[in-house]
Computed example of a mutant assay.
Amino acid sequence: MDQQTRQAYLARIGIRQAVEISPEGLAQLHLQHLRTVPFENLSLFLDQPVQLNEAALVDKLVRQRRGGFCYEVNHAFARLLASLGFDVSLLAAQVFDGTVYGPPFDHLLLRVRFDGGDYLADVGFGDSFLLPLPLLPGACSHQPGASYRLASTQGQLSLLQCKQVDDWRPLYRFSPDVHDITDFEPMNRFHQHSPASHFTRRPICSLARPDGRISLSGARLIITLGADRLEQPIGDAVTLRQCLKKHFGIDLSGEQAALLFARGCAAGDAVTSATGSTPSRRR
């Protein structure tokens, strides 16, 4: 990533001053990324292939001011970190769906190394930790809205989240093995095209806010403020377009909004009603 691209990326996430190559600097970048770059899968309903090369990612996240799912936003964030001088690697995780763990390479996350220890970074999971986690099994991190800890089992680490007292639930598990982005391509294709992927069922768009989180799931806008949750229906493409622009900074054309609503929102809600399925925890 060249200097001009790096500066444009930093401006995109609201960073205009020098960043320290330290855990504190990583935390600043991590939080700003989560509050400015949405976790979203809208491309899957807009005939836009998800490409993982740097040029495509920069064009989408920085120039178009869009977001993406884990393979996009975490890989882009990794390229930004590396260009700043951070020691960052790609790790692969299996996401827990409430019953079983998904396949290998179901999720991409990051390890960032410092002399004082390693940290886990993840700006591509939706409702998860806001600040990087020390890669220390058993260590507990109390953050706004939830607590997190890593549990070690048979050579793997499981990320656990607790939103109520002593109610620890797994989000995903991963190994310390380092991977290249090409290792994630088969699952990137799966999540774009397979009916078995939750990403192909309905549009998802989610952004952390200082007071909570705001999310689009199908034809519903979900606003979470602490323990309070408000849902608002989205009844047409015009409202959808206005919602994406106002809350997520995503500026679709009228034609794109109509296509997204027809393919994703109306159809996605019909599938939800028929099957009784609920949105993924990645939201």
Rank of each mutant, 00 (worst) to 15 (best):
Q3W: 12
T5E: 15
A8Y: 10
A8I: 05
A11R: 08
I13L: 09
G14L: 04
I15D: 06
R16W: 14
E20S: 10
I21M: 03
I21Y: 02
P23W: 08
P23E: 04
Q28A: 12
L29N: 01
H30W: 02
L31E: 08
H33V: 00
H33M: 03
T36S: 11
T36Y: 00
V37R: 07
P38N: 05
Q48T: 14
Q48W: 06
Q48E: 08
P49H: 05
Q51P: 09
L52Y: 01
E54H: 11
A55C: 07
R65Y: 15
R65V: 12
R66M: 07
R66A: 08
C70Q: 00
N74K: 08
H75A: 07
H75Y: 13
F77H: 01
F77R: 03
D87K: 11
V88R: 03
L90P: 02
L90T: 00
L90E: 02
A92I: 05
Q94P: 05
Q94M: 04
V100P: 06
Y101P: 12
F105W: 02
L109F: 01
R113P: 04
V123A: 03
G124D: 02
G126V: 00
D127M: 01
S128H: 03
F129E: 00
P137V: 05
G138A: 05
Q154A: 09
G155L: 03
C162Y: 11
L171Q: 00
S175N: 09
D177Q: 15
V178Q: 14
H179I: 04
H179C: 02
D180Q: 14
T182Y: 05
F184I: 00
A196G: 11
A196F: 09
S197C: 12
S197I: 02
T200R: 01
R201T: 09
R201Y: 03
R202Q: 10
C205T: 01
S206D: 04
I214F: 04
I214P: 06
S217Y: 12
G218Q: 05
I222L: 08
L225T: 15
L225D: 09
A227Y: 14
A227P: 07
R229G: 08
L230W: 15
L230S: 11
G235S: 13
D236L: 01
D236H: 13
E255Q: 12
A257G: 06
R263H: 11
G264R: 00
G264L: 07
A266W: 04
S273T: 10
T278F: 13
T278Q: 15
P279M: 14
R281H: 10
R282Q: 13
